[in-house]
């Protein structure tokens, strides 16, 4: 028993010793799969001595990790919910929002589909399960296979708010782990439909449909009905200097903007 105690004591040494220059970023898959790793790499390339840890499980995990103190920066592809703000204030923390980029959610179908455009109402019908066949929206007959992100995803939530009138997804929808999985499935399923961030629409086998007759192009960002901003969240007053410097760089520097548009988002300056 003595030894076991000693063992526990040794383990207990693990006193939150975070090295000063480490930045832990957690949250959205939309930001974390492509944009943030590359920003991090470029930031180090620019001569900054920091190290990064990135985990991208979905926007909700940004807030749970910030709340638990296991992340410095939370990435989120949706606005923080009121109830989440409440949780932070309940623990005496205030949250700070940094906008990192703008994104348009593309509604994608198989490239062989005859559908070129949909209205928001039709999209709502399809994703809530009211419309189940392509013929109902003017396509060739065939049962619609709907692919959505998993529930932790910010895209899941913002799509629900922007395109589905806040209604719940139909039970027939398939939940996919990442944007890419959706694109992959839609590319291989002639009757598939899904949504992905703008950065992921440039892939063989899929095409983005126009929504309310507005095409999915960066220059249409203002008119496109399903567009949103991408955020970094931090705890006010608790952010390390290195992390602050990185965020400032990521949201203002020209190089960063170049990377943001390279991965297919719209940089703040544009």
């Amino acid at each position: 028993m003595k030894k076991t105690l000693a063992l526990f004591a040794a383990v207990a040494l693990v006193a939150g010793a975070n090295a000063e220059d480490k930045i832990v970023i957690k949250g959205s898959d939309t930001l974390g799969a492509k944009m943030v790793p590359q920003l991090a790499e470029a930031y180090k390339e620019a001569g900054n001595e920091v190290s990064f840890e990135i985990a991208a499980e979905g926007s909700s995990s940004a807030f749970t990790n910030l709340l638990a103190g296991t992340a410095d920066i939370g990435m989120s592809s949706r606005n923080i919910k009121d109830s989440e703000v409440d949780e932070f204030t309940a623990k005496g923390m205030e949250i700070k929002d940094w906008i990192g980029a703008y994104d348009m959610i593309g509604v994608i179908v198989n490239e062989n589909s005859s559908i070129e455009g949909l209205t928001v109402e039709q999209i709502e019908g399809i994703f809530t399960g009211d419309i189940t066949d392509w013929s109902e929206v003017g396509g060739d007959a065939g049962p619609i296979s709907v692919y959505t992100r998993n529930t932790s995803s910010g895209t899941y939530k913002s799509f629900q708010e922007m395109a589905m009138n806040k209604r719940d997804y139909g039970a027939d929808t398939q939940k996919m782990a990442g944007n890419e999985q959706i694109a992959e499935e839609v590319a291989k399923n002639a009757n598939g439909i899904g949504y992905v961030g703008l950065a992921y629409t440039d892939k063989d086998g899929i095409k983005a449909v126009a929504v309310n007759d507005v095409e999915l192009k960066p220059e249409n960002a203002k008119d496109y009905p399903i567009a949103r901003s991408l955020h970094y969240y931090t705890i006010d007053g608790k952010l390390s200097e290195a992390a602050t410097k990185f965020l400032t760089w990521a949201t203002t520097d020209e190089k960063a903007a170049e990377i943001v548009s390279r991965v297919g988002f719209i940089a703040l300056s544009e």
Partner: peptide
């Protein structure tokens, strides 16, 4: 587990406790 970590575990810390407490 972590998806991305750009330093190796021993490069990232200065104490034994820190070594074991990283992802």
């Amino acid at each position: 587990a972590l998806a991305h970590k750009d330093k190796l575990p021993w490069q990232d810390t200065d104490s034994i406790g820190g070594f074991f407490s990283q992802s």
